[in-house]
Design a binder for these strands. Structure first.
Lengths: 229, 229
DNA sequence: TAGTGGTCTAGACCACGGA
DNA sequence: CCGTGGTCTAGACCACTAA
């Protein structure tokens, strides 16, 4: 075996980062590259395909391959289950159910979850603790039309997130990150001052077009989400 | 051509989401799957490899392939250049340089950027506006030992981010998201009240082990980072 | 040690889309 | 139209690792 796709990929990447291949410049086609590397076209193809996936190069049939002007910088962000997240910090995890009630969906939620006028939802408020200290406040709404069995389940021992993950798959999700000021209730739950800046995640989850759940996760003061390239 | 890798992938995914393949269960090996789908082993391999990349299944030589207990939920997050980000909102972008000065690195920064006692840095403060309103406050430090040409450049017309992207490649980066309370200066820059909760990104960038730059990006009130699965 | 996934090859056909 | 990337095939050898 002459050369691996990893070596081809690394070599092309080197040429790009060292300036031998300038941004925007065209690259040889796969057949020529395969010949110059002395390998099969499929090998070159895999290297180039991964570089394209990574946002480094741009490929178009007939037009060929060029180095991207501005490489698309992207990160993979893991969405952990809160219990695992806390365990990875080396802390003891504790879960507490604060509220669990089926009720008609409020107006603002109907809009967000695309619910009908009379649809009911399960409203859950939970707290997640790390080594006894508040870590995350969870405010969740589950669409009972899509998931009637949620009404029969008591969420005393297992958090709704874990229950949902093991019960229903989902096909699409939207996540957003932002900052909020702690209101009085949240401040008490998270043991901080009213008005403190808190990191919040919102997530909506769908199964084949139907909204399953909407959740707001508010973290203790100073929480960070960290990623590496 | 009988079946494509996309069809194989979709079919396996369907089996998983519909419960035919339970979490944790073992799957047939590639040779058997190829036979049952009536395609080449390479086709099955590509489908399975992508499912593994997506965190849906887990593969180990000799041990075989199983459906993950808890699928790794991950998102790809694009890191835009602020000018492009604003343009995509359909707003007019304006850039302003507030401060640009070479100086010795303060202690806290030396620790973050792994700098020596006498290393100097370029300190830049910039503002980015969308349709005339403050959008992002940029507080950046560039390692002059790694990038002496930064001292010769005036950053009057082009933001340091764009300049860096087009000037130096980087090999590694760490990004973190969190919430901060606006201090008096930031509040004035971003036209909000002191104490408001603001979304902030911090990014450190390395080139082959050497720190290039550290930047804090603070966004206007209400900014959100949104991702889809 | 033996079974499984990881990868390469040489060749083929095809879909897309610029010229 | 026709060059380019996208994909499939059949076969092969290899690396890893559980048994």
């Amino acid at each position: 075996m002459s050369i691996t796709y990893r070596e081809v990929k690394a070599d092309i990447l080197r040429q790009i980062t060292q300036g031998e291949l300038a941004p925007g410049s065209a690259m040889p086609n796969e057949v020529d590259l395969a010949a110059s590397y002395g390998c099969a076209r499929a090998t070159v193809n895999r290297a180039m395909r991964e570089l394209a996936d990574d946002g480094i190069i741009e490929r178009r049939r007939k037009a060929g391959t060029r180095v991207r002007q501005n490489p698309i910088r992207q990160v993979r962000l893991n969405i952990p289950i809160v219990g695992q997240e806390i365990a990875e910090l080396g802390a003891a995890y504790r879960y507490a159910l604060v509220k669990c009630k089926a009720e008609p969906a409020p107006d603002w939620l109907r809009a967000r979850m695309a619910l009908g006028r009379d649809d009911r939802v399960m409203h859950l408020i939970c707290m997640h603790y790390a080594d006894g200290a508040p870590y995350q406040h969870e405010d969740r709404w589950i669409n009972l039309k899509a998931l009637p069995e949620a009404e029969l389940h008591d969420f005393l021992d297992v958090g709704p997130n874990e229950w949902l993950v093991s019960t229903v798959p989902f096909t699409d999700a939207q996540i957003s990150f932002h900052a909020v000021q702690a209101d009085a209730a949240t401040a008490e739950y998270l043991d901080c001052s009213e008005g403190d800046a808190l990191f919040q995640t919102e997530r909506t989850t769908w199964l084949e077009g139907q909204t399953i759940t909407f959740v707001q996760l508010t973290y203790r003061r100073g929480h960070r989400v960290t990623m590496q390239y």
